[in-house]
Design a protein around this nucleic acid. Sequence first.
DNA 1: CGTTTGCTTGAATTCTGTCAAAGCAGGTGG
DNA 2: CCACCTGCTTTGACAGAATTCAAGCAAACG
Lengths: 193, 193
Amino acid sequence: MFELLFERLESQVKFSEEERKIIQSYFKSKKLKRKQFFLQEGEICNCLAFIIKGSLYSYSIDSKGTEHVIQFGLEGWWIADLYSFFTKEPSTLNIEVLEDCELLFIEKINQDELMKKIPHFEGYYRVLYQNAYIALQKRIGGTIGLSAEEKYANLIEQYTPLLNRVPQHLIASYLGITPETLSRIRKQAAEQH
Amino acid sequence: MFELLFERLESQVKFSEEERKIIQSYFKSKKLKRKQFFLQEGEICNCLAFIIKGSLYSYSIDSKGTEHVIQFGLEGWWIADLYSFFTKEPSTLNIEVLEDCELLFIEKINQDELMKKIPHFEGYYRVLYQNAYIALQKRIGGTIGLSAEEKYANLIEQYTPLLNRVPQHLIASYLGITPETLSRIRKQAAEQH
DNA sequence: CGTTTGCTTGAATTCTGTCAAAGCAGGTGG
DNA sequence: CCACCTGCTTTGACAGAATTCAAGCAAACG
């Protein structure tokens, strides 16, 4: 249950056996089925979730009612609305289950306590956010200002695993194009080989 | 010289007088003039810069030779290519001075040492990256999948100060549209009032 | 004063979105 | 086991949006 979590934690920071026990005690687990929500718009995001199994995605809904996919989450990734988590303001995001999930989650209060108790846990989070930031910056570089075709090419390069597990219309939304455009791009690409 | 830095540091974490002295000793200062580079493509980004005065912007150049603005930096902000900074791989970004600058910078080795010496300095970075991450996510939400007009409207809402200090063609690049399109949008908007 | 830099404008072209329809699984219940 | 949904993808025709290319203009600069 905790193997994957510690594998990820310890790729950055080492913990003693005792510390691991403490860390474990702060996490709870939860299973969610396809179409269920981990978070709904208007709620306050009280926990960070670590994905053990399955997949989720977060999205916002704009004033015209269009969904915009913000992020996908697969095994080994964290997912949450960080903005709501830190500010305690109601979330503008929805986080929905794509494939039946097993999650470990930690509540804000417990996270704060845990960081006090085990200071280098904070170090892990620092690195985590650093990497998350870098990844987002890459995403921006790989989408903003590019044609639909280029965006898709970039996505293939970086996140091929996604393509097999995520419906195309969500990929399209993630790239900021319509499902129709994505379908046509794929057709073109296929014809060229 | 260090007032602004400590103001920002201490909005998150408090330091003792002694700690402040130590922190100061790890930073060096540098002045740069308009058009100079803080970092050029191909170099390894060895330092994080904190902007005391002036402004900079970072951009990448794609295979067609088009510039894409990734980030602007104003007083009180940090700027660097984090990817290169942490991996020590050559940067794909350029960071150029827009308005004559005064910077405080810290080298990677010193940063690591400083975090060991003053553990809650790491806490500051954690919060910094959290916020940076949230800001980037907002940026994605405010650009991907929206029309040029909507993107610009979002930018005005969030970063009005930028508009007065940054040339329009850089704003356009930041939004992922052409300068011509931006010009036309502004004209339209002006006509409506 | 001439040069550079940035902004605007217009016309033609290309790309992308919209709308509507049809095809194609996979899943469900009869 | 088949018929029927339902959700997702594909296709086509068209309208609208954004880019490209070219030219002109104004302010800033050496």
